[in-house]
Design a protein around this nucleic acid. Structure first.
Length: 464
RNA sequence: GUCCCCAUCGUCUAGCCCGGCCUAGGACACCGGCCUUUCACGCCGGCGACGGGGGUUCGAAUCCCCCUGGGGACGCCA
Protein backbone atom coordinates (compact mmCIF):
# COMPACT_ATOMS: atom_id res chain seq x y z
CA UNK A 1 0.00 0.00 0.00
CA UNK A 2 1.18 3.48 -0.76
CA UNK A 3 1.74 5.99 2.01
CA UNK A 4 -1.04 5.96 4.54
CA UNK A 5 -3.34 8.97 4.56
CA UNK A 6 -5.98 9.15 7.26
CA UNK A 7 -8.21 11.88 8.57
CA UNK A 8 -10.31 13.06 11.46
CA UNK A 9 -13.42 14.83 10.27
CA UNK A 10 -15.52 16.24 13.11
CA UNK A 11 -18.52 18.47 12.62
CA UNK A 12 -18.12 21.65 14.65
CA UNK A 13 -21.37 21.53 16.56
CA UNK A 14 -19.91 21.13 20.03
CA UNK A 15 -16.76 20.36 21.97
CA UNK A 16 -14.42 17.42 21.30
CA UNK A 17 -15.95 14.47 23.12
CA UNK A 18 -14.22 11.32 24.25
CA UNK A 19 -15.66 9.22 21.42
CA UNK A 20 -14.37 11.58 18.79
CA UNK A 21 -11.06 11.85 20.57
CA UNK A 22 -10.68 8.10 20.47
CA UNK A 23 -11.23 7.79 16.73
CA UNK A 24 -8.93 10.75 16.23
CA UNK A 25 -6.32 8.98 18.35
CA UNK A 26 -6.61 5.77 16.33
CA UNK A 27 -6.11 7.73 13.14
CA UNK A 28 -3.27 9.76 14.57
CA UNK A 29 -1.44 6.74 15.94
CA UNK A 30 -1.57 4.89 12.65
CA UNK A 31 -0.34 7.91 10.75
CA UNK A 32 2.53 8.54 13.16
CA UNK A 33 3.69 4.96 13.30
CA UNK A 34 3.85 4.56 9.53
CA UNK A 35 5.12 7.96 8.52
CA UNK A 36 1.72 8.65 7.02
CA UNK A 37 -0.34 11.79 6.95
CA UNK A 38 -3.04 12.85 9.38
CA UNK A 39 -5.53 15.29 7.91
CA UNK A 40 -7.99 17.37 9.91
CA UNK A 41 -11.12 18.32 8.06
CA UNK A 42 -13.95 20.36 9.51
CA UNK A 43 -17.31 19.09 8.31
CA UNK A 44 -19.29 22.28 8.47
CA UNK A 45 -21.74 21.85 5.64
CA UNK A 46 -24.55 22.35 8.14
CA UNK A 47 -24.15 26.10 8.30
CA UNK A 48 -27.00 26.39 10.79
CA UNK A 49 -25.29 24.47 13.54
CA UNK A 50 -21.59 24.88 12.84
CA UNK A 51 -19.74 27.43 14.94
CA UNK A 52 -16.23 28.80 15.16
CA UNK A 53 -16.30 28.28 18.93
CA UNK A 54 -16.77 24.57 18.32
CA UNK A 55 -13.88 24.52 15.87
CA UNK A 56 -11.69 26.17 18.50
CA UNK A 57 -12.88 23.77 21.17
CA UNK A 58 -12.03 20.78 19.00
CA UNK A 59 -8.62 22.22 18.17
CA UNK A 60 -7.98 22.85 21.88
CA UNK A 61 -8.95 19.32 22.81
CA UNK A 62 -6.72 17.83 20.15
CA UNK A 63 -3.81 20.04 21.13
CA UNK A 64 -4.22 19.06 24.78
CA UNK A 65 -4.05 15.40 23.83
CA UNK A 66 -1.02 16.11 21.71
CA UNK A 67 -2.50 15.55 18.26
CA UNK A 68 -1.27 17.86 15.57
CA UNK A 69 -2.70 17.50 12.09
CA UNK A 70 -0.21 17.29 9.23
CA UNK A 71 -2.73 18.93 6.93
CA UNK A 72 -5.66 21.15 7.72
CA UNK A 73 -7.89 22.18 9.23
CA UNK A 74 -9.65 22.15 5.90
CA UNK A 75 -13.11 23.68 5.96
CA UNK A 76 -15.79 22.18 3.77
CA UNK A 77 -17.71 25.43 3.87
CA UNK A 78 -14.95 26.92 1.73
CA UNK A 79 -15.45 24.31 -0.95
CA UNK A 80 -19.12 24.76 -1.71
CA UNK A 81 -18.47 25.93 -5.27
CA UNK A 82 -16.47 22.84 -5.96
CA UNK A 83 -19.18 20.55 -4.59
CA UNK A 84 -21.68 22.32 -6.80
CA UNK A 85 -19.68 21.46 -9.87
CA UNK A 86 -19.68 17.84 -8.76
CA UNK A 87 -23.44 17.90 -8.38
CA UNK A 88 -23.65 19.27 -11.88
CA UNK A 89 -21.35 16.54 -13.12
CA UNK A 90 -23.61 13.86 -11.70
CA UNK A 91 -26.63 15.63 -13.13
CA UNK A 92 -25.03 15.84 -16.58
CA UNK A 93 -24.06 12.20 -16.53
CA UNK A 94 -27.53 11.12 -15.53
CA UNK A 95 -26.45 9.88 -12.13
CA UNK A 96 -28.51 12.43 -10.24
CA UNK A 97 -31.84 14.15 -10.63
CA UNK A 98 -33.84 17.04 -9.28
CA UNK A 99 -36.51 16.18 -6.77
CA UNK A 100 -39.40 18.48 -6.10
CA UNK A 101 -41.02 16.60 -3.26
CA UNK A 102 -41.54 18.79 -0.21
CA UNK A 103 -40.28 17.94 3.26
CA UNK A 104 -43.88 17.59 4.38
CA UNK A 105 -44.64 15.01 1.69
CA UNK A 106 -41.49 13.13 2.58
CA UNK A 107 -42.31 13.08 6.26
CA UNK A 108 -45.77 11.73 5.52
CA UNK A 109 -44.38 8.97 3.32
CA UNK A 110 -41.76 8.07 5.88
CA UNK A 111 -44.31 7.76 8.59
CA UNK A 112 -46.62 5.69 6.43
CA UNK A 113 -43.80 3.30 5.54
CA UNK A 114 -42.81 2.89 9.18
CA UNK A 115 -46.38 2.17 10.07
CA UNK A 116 -46.63 -0.41 7.29
CA UNK A 117 -43.59 -2.14 8.76
CA UNK A 118 -41.32 -1.22 5.89
CA UNK A 119 -38.00 0.48 5.83
CA UNK A 120 -38.71 4.16 5.28
CA UNK A 121 -37.00 5.17 2.09
CA UNK A 122 -37.59 7.58 -0.76
CA UNK A 123 -40.12 6.12 -3.17
CA UNK A 124 -38.52 7.52 -6.31
CA UNK A 125 -41.38 9.80 -7.32
CA UNK A 126 -39.11 12.27 -9.09
CA UNK A 127 -36.54 9.77 -10.34
CA UNK A 128 -38.08 9.39 -13.76
CA UNK A 129 -39.79 12.70 -13.98
CA UNK A 130 -39.61 14.16 -17.47
CA UNK A 131 -40.11 17.86 -16.82
CA UNK A 132 -37.44 19.78 -14.94
CA UNK A 133 -38.97 23.12 -13.95
CA UNK A 134 -36.09 25.44 -13.16
CA UNK A 135 -37.66 28.11 -11.02
CA UNK A 136 -39.15 25.65 -8.54
CA UNK A 137 -37.58 24.71 -5.20
CA UNK A 138 -35.88 21.35 -5.39
CA UNK A 139 -33.14 19.16 -3.99
CA UNK A 140 -30.81 16.96 -6.01
CA UNK A 141 -30.80 13.24 -5.40
CA UNK A 142 -28.25 10.62 -6.32
CA UNK A 143 -29.62 7.98 -8.65
CA UNK A 144 -28.65 4.84 -6.77
CA UNK A 145 -28.49 1.36 -8.30
CA UNK A 146 -31.80 -0.45 -7.95
CA UNK A 147 -30.54 -3.98 -7.64
CA UNK A 148 -27.46 -5.97 -6.77
CA UNK A 149 -25.50 -5.50 -3.58
CA UNK A 150 -22.78 -3.27 -2.24
CA UNK A 151 -20.08 -4.88 -0.12
CA UNK A 152 -16.89 -3.84 1.56
CA UNK A 153 -14.28 -5.53 3.67
CA UNK A 154 -14.05 -3.63 6.91
CA UNK A 155 -10.62 -3.73 8.57
CA UNK A 156 -12.25 -4.23 11.95
CA UNK A 157 -15.64 -5.84 11.32
CA UNK A 158 -14.84 -7.98 8.31
CA UNK A 159 -16.99 -8.40 5.24
CA UNK A 160 -20.25 -6.45 5.22
CA UNK A 161 -22.89 -6.49 2.46
CA UNK A 162 -26.03 -4.49 1.83
CA UNK A 163 -28.75 -5.24 -0.69
CA UNK A 164 -29.06 -2.19 -2.90
CA UNK A 165 -32.82 -2.43 -2.56
CA UNK A 166 -32.29 -1.37 1.04
CA UNK A 167 -30.78 1.89 -0.06
CA UNK A 168 -32.63 4.84 -1.53
CA UNK A 169 -31.76 7.89 -3.57
CA UNK A 170 -30.09 10.15 -1.09
CA UNK A 171 -30.15 13.90 -1.24
CA UNK A 172 -26.80 15.34 -2.27
CA UNK A 173 -27.85 18.97 -2.50
CA UNK A 174 -30.40 20.75 -0.36
CA UNK A 175 -33.05 23.22 -1.47
CA UNK A 176 -30.76 26.06 -0.41
CA UNK A 177 -28.04 24.76 -2.70
CA UNK A 178 -25.72 23.46 0.03
CA UNK A 179 -24.37 19.92 -0.31
CA UNK A 180 -24.99 17.15 2.22
CA UNK A 181 -22.61 15.10 4.33
CA UNK A 182 -22.69 11.78 2.48
CA UNK A 183 -21.83 13.54 -0.74
CA UNK A 184 -19.04 15.86 0.34
CA UNK A 185 -17.39 13.29 2.56
CA UNK A 186 -16.82 11.16 -0.51
CA UNK A 187 -15.50 13.98 -2.65
CA UNK A 188 -13.14 15.21 0.04
CA UNK A 189 -11.84 11.85 1.11
CA UNK A 190 -11.22 10.96 -2.50
CA UNK A 191 -9.61 14.25 -3.47
CA UNK A 192 -7.54 14.42 -0.31
CA UNK A 193 -6.35 10.92 -1.22
CA UNK A 194 -7.48 9.40 2.05
CA UNK A 195 -6.91 5.67 1.66
CA UNK A 196 -8.06 4.40 5.06
CA UNK A 197 -11.14 5.77 6.72
CA UNK A 198 -11.31 5.12 10.45
CA UNK A 199 -14.52 6.31 12.04
CA UNK A 200 -17.27 5.29 14.44
CA UNK A 201 -19.33 2.24 13.51
CA UNK A 202 -22.47 4.35 13.48
CA UNK A 203 -21.26 5.14 9.95
CA UNK A 204 -21.45 1.55 8.74
CA UNK A 205 -24.89 2.17 7.30
CA UNK A 206 -23.63 5.17 5.34
CA UNK A 207 -20.76 3.25 3.83
CA UNK A 208 -22.58 1.43 1.00
CA UNK A 209 -24.14 4.70 -0.18
CA UNK A 210 -20.76 6.35 -0.10
CA UNK A 211 -19.21 3.50 -2.04
CA UNK A 212 -21.84 3.94 -4.73
CA UNK A 213 -20.98 7.61 -4.86
CA UNK A 214 -17.26 6.86 -5.16
CA UNK A 215 -18.04 4.71 -8.17
CA UNK A 216 -20.41 7.18 -9.78
CA UNK A 217 -17.82 9.92 -9.36
CA UNK A 218 -15.07 7.73 -10.79
CA UNK A 219 -12.96 7.60 -7.63
CA UNK A 220 -11.05 4.69 -6.10
CA UNK A 221 -12.85 3.28 -3.07
CA UNK A 222 -10.70 3.55 0.08
CA UNK A 223 -10.46 1.01 2.87
CA UNK A 224 -12.71 1.31 5.89
CA UNK A 225 -12.24 0.55 9.57
CA UNK A 226 -15.28 1.06 11.73
CA UNK A 227 -14.49 1.49 15.40
CA UNK A 228 -17.10 0.32 17.94
CA UNK A 229 -18.98 2.93 19.92
CA UNK A 230 -18.39 3.97 23.50
CA UNK A 231 -21.42 3.36 25.71
CA UNK A 232 -22.50 4.75 29.06
CA UNK A 233 -22.98 2.63 32.17
CA UNK A 234 -26.53 1.81 31.03
CA UNK A 235 -25.13 0.52 27.73
CA UNK A 236 -26.68 3.37 25.84
CA UNK A 237 -24.61 5.51 23.56
CA UNK A 238 -22.41 7.73 25.72
CA UNK A 239 -23.86 11.18 26.24
CA UNK A 240 -23.68 14.08 28.66
CA UNK A 241 -26.18 12.51 30.99
CA UNK A 242 -23.61 9.81 31.73
CA UNK A 243 -21.28 12.46 33.11
CA UNK A 244 -18.44 14.37 31.52
CA UNK A 245 -17.93 13.61 27.84
CA UNK A 246 -15.88 16.62 26.87
CA UNK A 247 -12.17 16.03 26.64
CA UNK A 248 -11.40 19.42 28.16
CA UNK A 249 -13.72 18.73 31.08
CA UNK A 250 -11.25 16.03 32.07
CA UNK A 251 -8.44 18.54 32.04
CA UNK A 252 -10.51 20.76 34.30
CA UNK A 253 -11.15 17.86 36.66
CA UNK A 254 -7.44 17.30 37.02
CA UNK A 255 -6.76 14.53 34.56
CA UNK A 256 -3.49 14.19 32.71
CA UNK A 257 -3.67 13.93 28.91
CA UNK A 258 -1.53 10.80 28.93
CA UNK A 259 -4.04 9.13 31.29
CA UNK A 260 -7.00 9.95 29.05
CA UNK A 261 -5.08 8.81 25.99
CA UNK A 262 -4.05 5.59 27.70
CA UNK A 263 -7.62 4.92 28.77
CA UNK A 264 -9.30 5.80 25.50
CA UNK A 265 -7.00 3.75 23.32
CA UNK A 266 -7.15 0.79 25.69
CA UNK A 267 -10.96 0.91 25.58
CA UNK A 268 -11.71 -1.43 22.70
CA UNK A 269 -8.11 -2.29 22.01
CA UNK A 270 -5.74 -4.51 23.92
CA UNK A 271 -2.20 -5.77 23.85
CA UNK A 272 -2.06 -8.97 25.86
CA UNK A 273 -2.40 -8.24 29.55
CA UNK A 274 -0.85 -4.80 29.44
CA UNK A 275 -2.70 -1.85 30.85
CA UNK A 276 -0.19 0.96 30.95
CA UNK A 277 0.76 2.57 27.67
CA UNK A 278 2.79 5.71 27.29
CA UNK A 279 2.47 7.45 23.96
CA UNK A 280 5.64 5.80 22.73
CA UNK A 281 4.29 2.37 23.66
CA UNK A 282 1.14 3.06 21.68
CA UNK A 283 3.18 4.10 18.69
CA UNK A 284 5.01 0.82 18.88
CA UNK A 285 2.14 -1.48 19.80
CA UNK A 286 -1.13 -0.10 18.49
CA UNK A 287 -2.69 -1.94 15.60
CA UNK A 288 -6.15 -2.19 14.11
CA UNK A 289 -5.75 -5.97 14.31
CA UNK A 290 -6.25 -5.90 18.06
CA UNK A 291 -9.22 -3.58 18.05
CA UNK A 292 -12.30 -5.45 19.24
CA UNK A 293 -15.61 -5.56 17.41
CA UNK A 294 -17.95 -4.87 20.29
CA UNK A 295 -18.97 -1.62 21.90
CA UNK A 296 -17.40 -0.77 25.26
CA UNK A 297 -18.73 0.86 28.39
CA UNK A 298 -16.91 3.96 29.53
CA UNK A 299 -15.55 3.24 33.01
CA UNK A 300 -14.65 6.40 34.98
CA UNK A 301 -13.08 4.40 37.83
CA UNK A 302 -10.51 2.84 35.60
CA UNK A 303 -9.69 6.18 34.04
CA UNK A 304 -9.22 7.55 37.55
CA UNK A 305 -6.90 4.69 38.43
CA UNK A 306 -4.85 5.33 35.30
CA UNK A 307 -4.71 9.01 36.13
CA UNK A 308 -3.38 8.22 39.60
CA UNK A 309 -0.80 5.99 37.98
CA UNK A 310 0.40 8.68 35.62
CA UNK A 311 0.54 11.24 38.41
CA UNK A 312 2.52 8.86 40.58
CA UNK A 313 4.98 8.19 37.78
CA UNK A 314 5.03 11.64 36.29
CA UNK A 315 7.97 13.99 36.10
CA UNK A 316 7.71 16.21 39.19
CA UNK A 317 8.96 19.35 37.49
CA UNK A 318 6.33 19.09 34.80
CA UNK A 319 3.66 18.23 37.35
CA UNK A 320 4.74 21.27 39.36
CA UNK A 321 4.00 23.51 36.40
CA UNK A 322 0.59 21.90 36.02
CA UNK A 323 -0.11 22.08 39.73
CA UNK A 324 0.53 25.80 39.65
CA UNK A 325 -2.16 26.21 37.02
CA UNK A 326 -4.72 24.39 39.14
CA UNK A 327 -3.65 26.33 42.22
CA UNK A 328 -3.96 29.58 40.28
CA UNK A 329 -7.45 28.60 39.25
CA UNK A 330 -8.30 28.02 42.88
CA UNK A 331 -6.98 31.46 43.70
CA UNK A 332 -4.07 30.16 45.75
CA UNK A 333 -1.05 32.42 45.62
CA UNK A 334 2.12 30.35 45.25
CA UNK A 335 4.65 33.14 44.91
CA UNK A 336 5.95 33.11 48.48
CA UNK A 337 5.26 29.45 49.14
CA UNK A 338 7.57 26.48 49.33
CA UNK A 339 9.22 24.90 46.33
CA UNK A 340 6.52 23.52 44.01
CA UNK A 341 8.51 20.53 42.88
CA UNK A 342 8.96 19.45 46.48
CA UNK A 343 5.28 20.03 47.09
CA UNK A 344 4.43 17.78 44.16
CA UNK A 345 6.80 15.06 45.33
CA UNK A 346 5.18 15.00 48.75
CA UNK A 347 1.73 14.63 47.21
CA UNK A 348 2.33 12.54 44.10
CA UNK A 349 1.58 9.21 45.72
CA UNK A 350 -1.66 10.28 47.31
CA UNK A 351 -3.46 12.26 44.64
CA UNK A 352 -5.69 10.69 42.03
CA UNK A 353 -6.18 13.93 40.13
CA UNK A 354 -4.33 17.20 39.85
CA UNK A 355 -7.32 18.86 41.44
CA UNK A 356 -6.97 16.56 44.43
CA UNK A 357 -3.29 17.39 44.55
CA UNK A 358 -4.12 21.08 44.49
CA UNK A 359 -6.58 20.62 47.35
CA UNK A 360 -3.96 18.74 49.31
CA UNK A 361 -1.37 21.42 48.61
CA UNK A 362 -3.35 24.40 49.81
CA UNK A 363 -2.00 24.23 53.36
CA UNK A 364 1.56 24.65 52.11
CA UNK A 365 0.61 28.06 50.81
CA UNK A 366 -1.52 29.15 53.74
CA UNK A 367 0.65 30.72 56.48
CA UNK A 368 -2.35 31.05 58.76
CA UNK A 369 -3.75 27.56 58.41
CA UNK A 370 -7.30 26.98 59.44
CA UNK A 371 -7.42 24.59 62.38
CA UNK A 372 -9.90 21.78 62.15
CA UNK A 373 -12.00 22.13 65.35
CA UNK A 374 -12.07 18.42 66.10
CA UNK A 375 -8.32 18.07 65.58
CA UNK A 376 -7.64 21.12 67.67
CA UNK A 377 -9.74 19.82 70.51
CA UNK A 378 -8.07 16.47 70.43
CA UNK A 379 -4.45 17.52 70.07
CA UNK A 380 -4.14 21.06 71.46
CA UNK A 381 -4.52 20.31 75.18
CA UNK A 382 -2.51 21.34 78.21
CA UNK A 383 -0.76 17.99 78.35
CA UNK A 384 0.35 18.18 74.71
CA UNK A 385 1.70 21.70 74.96
CA UNK A 386 5.11 20.47 76.17
CA UNK A 387 5.24 18.25 73.13
CA UNK A 388 4.92 21.15 70.75
CA UNK A 389 7.33 23.24 72.81
CA UNK A 390 9.86 20.45 72.68
CA UNK A 391 9.43 20.22 68.89
CA UNK A 392 10.00 23.94 68.70
CA UNK A 393 13.18 23.69 70.72
CA UNK A 394 14.72 20.96 68.63
CA UNK A 395 13.52 22.17 65.25
CA UNK A 396 14.79 25.68 65.88
CA UNK A 397 18.18 24.26 66.76
CA UNK A 398 18.26 22.26 63.55
CA UNK A 399 20.10 23.95 60.75
CA UNK A 400 19.74 21.70 57.75
CA UNK A 401 16.16 20.81 56.99
CA UNK A 402 16.60 17.62 55.03
CA UNK A 403 14.52 14.51 55.52
CA UNK A 404 17.09 12.49 57.48
CA UNK A 405 18.07 15.36 59.73
CA UNK A 406 14.42 16.03 60.51
CA UNK A 407 13.85 12.40 61.32
CA UNK A 408 16.85 12.47 63.68
CA UNK A 409 15.54 15.65 65.23
CA UNK A 410 12.16 14.07 65.95
CA UNK A 411 13.89 11.06 67.46
CA UNK A 412 15.57 13.43 69.88
CA UNK A 413 12.16 14.85 70.81
CA UNK A 414 10.83 11.35 71.41
CA UNK A 415 13.78 10.52 73.59
CA UNK A 416 13.64 13.68 75.65
CA UNK A 417 9.93 13.29 76.28
CA UNK A 418 10.01 9.53 76.59
CA UNK A 419 7.10 9.31 74.19
CA UNK A 420 6.40 7.29 71.08
CA UNK A 421 6.02 8.98 67.75
CA UNK A 422 2.26 8.48 67.89
CA UNK A 423 2.10 10.99 70.74
CA UNK A 424 4.18 13.58 68.96
CA UNK A 425 3.62 13.46 65.21
CA UNK A 426 -0.11 14.16 65.26
CA UNK A 427 0.33 17.25 67.44
CA UNK A 428 2.99 18.68 65.17
CA UNK A 429 0.88 17.80 62.14
CA UNK A 430 -2.12 19.76 63.37
CA UNK A 431 0.14 22.68 64.20
CA UNK A 432 1.65 22.72 60.72
CA UNK A 433 -1.23 21.76 58.44
CA UNK A 434 -4.32 22.41 60.55
CA UNK A 435 -5.76 18.92 60.26
CA UNK A 436 -4.99 15.27 60.82
CA UNK A 437 -4.31 14.29 57.23
CA UNK A 438 -1.24 15.22 55.26
CA UNK A 439 1.83 13.75 53.65
CA UNK A 440 4.45 12.23 55.93
CA UNK A 441 5.24 14.77 58.64
CA UNK A 442 8.96 14.64 57.84
CA UNK A 443 8.15 15.64 54.31
CA UNK A 444 5.88 18.41 55.44
CA UNK A 445 8.58 19.87 57.68
CA UNK A 446 11.18 19.54 54.95
CA UNK A 447 9.02 21.11 52.25
CA UNK A 448 7.84 23.94 54.49
CA UNK A 449 11.36 24.78 55.62
CA UNK A 450 12.54 26.15 58.91
CA UNK A 451 11.10 29.64 58.74
CA UNK A 452 7.55 28.54 58.00
CA UNK A 453 7.70 25.66 60.45
CA UNK A 454 8.76 27.92 63.30
CA UNK A 455 6.13 30.51 62.48
CA UNK A 456 3.40 27.90 62.40
CA UNK A 457 4.46 26.32 65.67
CA UNK A 458 4.47 29.75 67.34
CA UNK A 459 1.02 30.46 66.03
CA UNK A 460 -0.28 27.07 67.11
CA UNK A 461 1.10 27.57 70.61
CA UNK A 462 -1.17 30.58 71.02
CA UNK A 463 -4.18 28.31 70.62
CA UNK A 464 -3.64 26.28 73.79
C1' G B 1 -40.93 -2.26 12.15
C1' U B 2 -36.76 -2.95 8.41
C1' C B 3 -31.58 -3.31 7.66
C1' C B 4 -26.59 -3.53 9.74
C1' C B 5 -23.28 -4.68 13.77
C1' C B 6 -22.14 -7.19 18.30
C1' A B 7 -22.20 -11.13 22.43
C1' U B 8 -16.13 -14.23 28.12
C1' C B 9 -16.38 -11.81 35.52
C1' G B 10 -20.45 -5.60 37.47
C1' U B 11 -16.83 -2.99 33.81
C1' C B 12 -12.32 -3.11 30.25
C1' U B 13 -10.32 -7.43 28.29
C1' A B 14 -6.75 -12.30 27.16
C1' G B 15 -8.01 -16.86 24.95
C1' C B 16 -11.47 -17.71 19.54
C1' C B 17 -8.94 -17.06 13.18
C1' C B 18 -5.04 -22.37 13.48
C1' G B 19 -10.68 -26.98 18.73
C1' G B 20 -7.42 -30.31 23.63
C1' C B 21 -2.00 -26.57 27.25
C1' C B 22 -8.80 -23.20 30.20
C1' U B 23 -10.62 -26.76 37.16
C1' A B 24 -10.98 -19.66 31.53
C1' G B 25 -5.72 -15.49 32.62
C1' G B 26 -4.98 -10.04 33.62
C1' A B 27 -6.87 -5.09 35.01
C1' C B 28 -10.57 -1.58 37.40
C1' A B 29 -14.16 -1.73 41.24
C1' C B 30 -15.55 -4.39 45.67
C1' C B 31 -14.28 -7.43 50.28
C1' G B 32 -10.43 -9.25 53.75
C1' G B 33 -5.26 -9.12 55.57
C1' C B 34 -0.17 -7.10 55.83
C1' C B 35 2.79 -2.57 55.96
C1' U B 36 2.19 2.19 58.60
C1' U B 37 2.96 8.67 62.61
C1' U B 38 -2.44 10.33 59.67
C1' C B 39 -4.40 9.82 54.72
C1' A B 40 -2.66 7.38 50.83
C1' C B 41 0.96 4.17 48.06
C1' G B 42 2.53 -0.76 48.00
C1' C B 43 2.12 -6.08 48.85
C1' C B 44 -0.82 -10.69 49.68
C1' G B 45 -5.53 -13.12 49.37
C1' G B 46 -10.88 -13.40 48.13
C1' C B 47 -15.44 -12.66 45.30
C1' G B 48 -16.69 -12.99 40.22
C1' A B 49 -17.85 -14.77 33.41
C1' C B 50 -17.74 -18.43 28.39
C1' G B 51 -26.41 -15.63 27.25
C1' G B 52 -29.73 -20.19 25.76
C1' G B 53 -30.63 -24.36 22.55
C1' G B 54 -29.22 -27.51 18.79
C1' G B 55 -25.42 -29.61 15.87
C1' U B 56 -19.99 -31.10 14.07
C1' U B 57 -16.11 -33.75 16.95
C1' C B 58 -13.02 -38.65 20.91
C1' G B 59 -13.01 -33.47 22.71
C1' A B 60 -15.91 -26.64 21.83
C1' A B 61 -15.22 -20.48 25.24
C1' U B 62 -13.03 -21.68 20.49
C1' C B 63 -16.30 -24.31 14.16
C1' C B 64 -21.81 -24.24 12.06
C1' C B 65 -27.21 -23.09 12.69
C1' C B 66 -31.36 -21.11 15.40
C1' C B 67 -33.11 -18.21 19.44
C1' U B 68 -32.47 -14.43 22.86
C1' G B 69 -30.25 -10.06 24.37
C1' G B 70 -27.73 -5.41 23.44
C1' G B 71 -26.18 -1.51 20.18
C1' G B 72 -26.50 1.31 15.65
C1' A B 73 -28.87 3.21 11.22
C1' C B 74 -33.29 4.47 8.79
C1' G B 75 -32.79 13.35 8.44
C1' C B 76 -33.07 18.79 3.02
C1' C B 77 -27.70 16.27 10.88
C1' A B 78 -22.88 14.76 10.53
Amino acid sequence: MSELRVRFAPSPTGYLHVGGARTALFNYLLARQSGGTFVLRIEDTDTERSTQESVDAILDGMAWLGMRPDEGPIYQSERFEHYKSKVQQLLDEGNAYRCYCTPEELDAKREAAMKAGEKPKYDGTCRNREDQPTGQAHVVRFKAPLDGETCFNDKIKGNICFQNTELDDLIIQRTDGTPTYNFVVVIDDAEMKINLIIRGDDHINNTPRQIQLYRALGYDVPEFAHVPMILGSDKKRLSKRHGATSVMAYRDMGYLPEALTNYLVRLGWSFGDEEIFAFGDLLEKFSLDNVGKSAGVFNPEKLLWLNAHWIKNGNSARLARLLKEYLDEKGVDTTDGPNLVMVVESLQERAQTMLEMADGAVFYFTPEVEFDPAAEEKFFKSETKPVLECCRKHLSALGDYNHDAIEGCMKAVMEELGLKFGKIGPVLRVALVGGTQSPSIYHVVEVLGKERVMARIERALTRF
